[in-house]
């Protein structure tokens, strides 16, 4: 579903991402782990089509910047930025129009109920707390019924109930055949849900393993993470 081949991204002379390749298949949850400055957000932004890059990225077989690819992927950014002068409901209506969705209202209602936002439908963007803005951002990404979805540090600012709902949603998305890519540096937050781990450091993917491979080796995610990042620091 998501195929990233030889992705490189330079800012001036700094190589933020160096020749990165990986895939996330339908029904798979891939997690992009790494310390601050590892290149996770640059990778996600490149996949979302926000940055120019070298290499190739395809989503559902289409080049990521094409209209066809954009129609099938969802993106939840690291910092929720929503329209100050649109209400919560109008955000969903706007997404429905942008993606030309049909019969979306019922699903929108359900999403708002799940995230305890159904009583805040008429609140303007500027009246929402950061956590609520994050919830709107998540609802908007889920409304399009994506075939591939990316979450960039999605748990930040969410209350415990919303975190639980989001974890359930990860599993539901996986079960529905959606390819999920989550970028985070908090290992505990994705411990129960991941299928494939991609550990990044200094712009490169140092580890690309499935849960089965990891279980067979008897190592925990945390052990592998620190063995990679500490080794790099020591060099």
């Amino acid at each position: 579903m998501l195929v990233v081949k030889n992705l490189s991204k330079k800012y001036e002379k700094v190589e933020a991402v160096k020749d990165v390749s990986f895939e996330v298949y339908p029904g798979e949850i891939g997690v992009l782990l790494g310390p601050n400055g590892a290149g996770k957000s640059t990778t996600i932004k490149s996949i979302a089509g926000l940055l120019r890059f070298d290499g190739s990225i395809t989503i559902d077989g289409k080049e990521n910047k094409t209209i066809g690819a954009k129609r099938v992927f969802g993106y939840v950014p690291e910092s929720p930025a929503i329209y100050e002068s649109l209400t919560v409901w109008e955000h969903l209506e706007f997404i429905a129009r942008a993606y030309e969705l049909k019969d979306w209202a019922e699903q929108a209602e359900k999403l708002l109920v799940r995230f305890d936002m159904d009583d805040k439908k008429k609140m303007l963007g500027k009246e929402l707390s950061k956590g609520m803005q994050q919830k709107v951002s998540i609802c908007c990404a889920l409304l399009i019924n994506p075939k591939m979805i990316m979450f960039d540090e999605p748990m930040i600012g969410l209350d415990p109930k919303a975190i639980k709902e989001l974890k359930d949603i990860f599993v539901e998305l996986k079960n529905s055949g959606c390819a999920v890519l989550i970028s985070t540096h908090i290992i505990d937050s994705i411990e129960e849900v991941w299928d494939k781990v991609l550990i990044m450091n200094k712009g490169e993917i140092k580890v690309n393993r499935t849960r089965a491979e990891m279980e067979a080796s008897g190592e925990s995610l945390e052990q592998v993470f620190f063995s990679v990042t500490d080794k790099e620091e020591g060099q």
Partner: peptide, 15 residues
């Protein structure tokens, strides 16, 4: 543009 445009519009299927 504002960041809301970046997050919603730039990733949407609009030319």
């Amino acid at each position: 543009f504002r960041m809301a445009d970046v997050n919603f519009l730039f990733t949407s299927p609009i030319r």
